[in-house]
């Protein structure tokens, strides 16, 4: 079970994301439509995955991505882009986002993407731990 932070200024989309993820997986979702509040959440809690819309008023997904990566270099961020804005998704990937998904998407798509992200995160974690052990053993 993982902890996910979902950020989208469209309340409807946000509600769906939370319902879908919690309904069809074991993950817990903290959801907010306000990216500033999301940044506050990041100060208080540690999330396994951040799913954020890219285009939001106030603070866009790119800024949130930067804030998250600054806080934790391994932060996993998946960005949601609107149809037809592939460039911004590529830009986000270049800035360290783990993956992107284009709206509208099927629920299976997002669930599989989350699954993949969680497994990747687990691998990175194990990898780090093993490295640490090896280094400690020297």
């Amino acid at each position: 079970m993982g902890r996910i932070l979902a950020v989208d200024d469209e309340l409807d989309m946000l509600a769906l994301l939370k319902m879908i993820i919690e309904g069809y997986s074991e993950h817990q979702v903290t959801a907010t439509n306000n990216p500033l509040e999301a940044a506050e959440f990041l100060d208080k809690e540690k999330f396994d995955l951040i799913i954020t819309d890219l285009k939001m008023p106030g603070m866009d997904g790119m800024e949130l991505l930067a804030a998250a990566r600054k806080k934790d270099e391994d932060a996993m961020v998946m960005v949601i882009t609107a149809y037809g804005s592939l460039e911004s998704a590529e830009e986000a990937m270049a800035q360290g986002a783990y993956d992107f998904i284009t709206k509208p998407f099927r629920k299976e798509q997002i669930l599989l993407a989350i699954d993949k992200a969680m497994r990747w995160r687990e691998m990175v974690r194990q990898n780090k731990e093993l490295k640490k052990r090896l280094e400690g053993g020297k």
């Binding site: 409807d12 509208p104 099927r106 299976e108």
Partner: peptide, 12 residues
């Protein structure tokens, strides 16, 4: 989009 399990918002 409506009938085959898509997530979409009012923007769409």
């Amino acid at each position: 989009k409506m009938n085959e399990g898509f997530l979409f918002d009012m923007h769409y």
